[in-house]
Write a protein that binds this DNA or RNA. Sequence first.
DNA 1: TCTCCGATTCACT
DNA 2: GTGAATCGGAGAA
Length: 174
Amino acid sequence: MKLGYDFFASDVLILAPELLGKILVRKFPDGNTIRLRIIETEAYRGTDDLACHASKGKTPRTEPMFMEAGTIYIYLIYGMYWMLNIVCSEIDNPQAVLIRGAGKYNGPGKLTKALRIDKTFNKTSIFENEFLWIEDDDFSGEYFTSPRVGIDYAGEPWISMPWNFKLKNFKIDF
DNA sequence: TCTCCGATTCACT
DNA sequence: GTGAATCGGAGAA
């Protein structure tokens, strides 16, 4: 079943692990559809979290994070890769989950490249979208946490927060 | 305007 | 392990 607003309207530290095992569905304009189980997520939490883009406040770039839960936040990194994030919590509480891996794609840049996700999805809704949504098939599995990747610039304590979540055992097929 | 640099990936040494 | 590719946002000038 397709996940709706209520699922995303919770704190990012609850939502990020909850998203593990859910199914990311991408429907291409030609009708082809891909389903991938989410295997890695990462939490970015509010204006205090110096690793979170929203710690700089509301700017043209970070505005989606201040929008309704379920809003998709897309940004370009290193001039070549689009990052896919799902906004959560309530309006004006900027939190988002970065989808770092799904199915056989084990990196956020590889994932969006394979799914052909770009900034045209920015600010659209993950539960009112014709081409991208998330489903629950009642799968659940154990997970483990790690510090977040690539945010050394944020300094402590943010570097050490165990806000990266990965499924322990999973099958790519389902 | 101009400069710096990033929530990455891949090819090389 | 090191460095290149590549570009727009944020902040300084």
